[in-house]
């Protein structure tokens, strides 16, 4: 008898809770933005964040509200871009390539002829060396701008990926959680906080 009462009480309470939740989901139903949902449907759902938004849905929201271009989705490529442009009724735009990771110049010293041309090209004086002597790159000063690669007559400068080290790593500034990648007129890529 006691057990029967316990089962009924728990079952009744669970039933009541289920009914309350069912009613609540009706009452608090959220009308989604239909345009955002249609854009979200054509995105690849990789949630890669290469568009500068934390995922596909935030990007779809931003596109639907018109605050960002239709061509930021790299994995979706041209197919996704054309579909979004069609949905939004805007002219298609070429899809941007992935932003390059930070680079460092590296001189292969045994091939260097000591011509000093790269030293003159370097805008931040990160290359040291004298005429007819090997040149080398001061890693902490190099900005990875690639300006020294072109002048080198023997092509002994490589651009290598810059390793992230603890000494140079800093906390990101508070309150700037969402980063937006945008391109300036000079073709440089800037990351700014939205």
């Amino acid at each position: 008898m006691n057990i029967l009462f316990a089962v009924l009480l728990l079952g009744g309470l669970a039933l009541l809770a289920g009914i309350v939740l069912a009613i609540a989901s009706r009452v608090f139903h959220i009308e989604g933005d239909p345009m955002m949902e249609r854009i979200d449907a054509v995105l690849p759902q990789t949630q890669c964040g290469q568009c500068g938004y934390p995922g596909c849905k935030p990007y779809a929201t931003a596109v639907a509200s018109g605050e960002v271009d239709v061509n930021k989705c790299v994995p979706g490529g041209e197919r996704a871009m054309l579909a979004i442009a069609d949905l939004m009724g805007v002219p298609p735009k070429e899809v941007e390539e992935e932003a390059a990771p930070p680079m460092l110049a590296y001189i292969r010293e045994d091939e260097c002829i000591g011509c000093t041309l790269c030293i003159k090209a370097c805008p931040v004086d990160a290359i040291i060396g004298a005429p007819k002597q090997y040149h080398t790159v001061v890693e902490s000063h190099c900005t990875g701008c690639t300006l020294c690669v072109e002048p080198c007559p023997v092509d002994c400068i490589d651009m290598l990926g810059k390793p992230e080290v603890l000494e140079e790593w800093t906390w990101s500034a508070p309150g700037k959680s969402r980063l937006v990648i945008e391109d300036s007129a000079e073709g440089e890529t800037h990351v700014r906080a939205a």
Partner: peptide
Amino acid sequence: QFIEMLIHK
């Protein structure tokens, strides 16, 4: 669960 729905709305 109920409060999540409430906050969502």
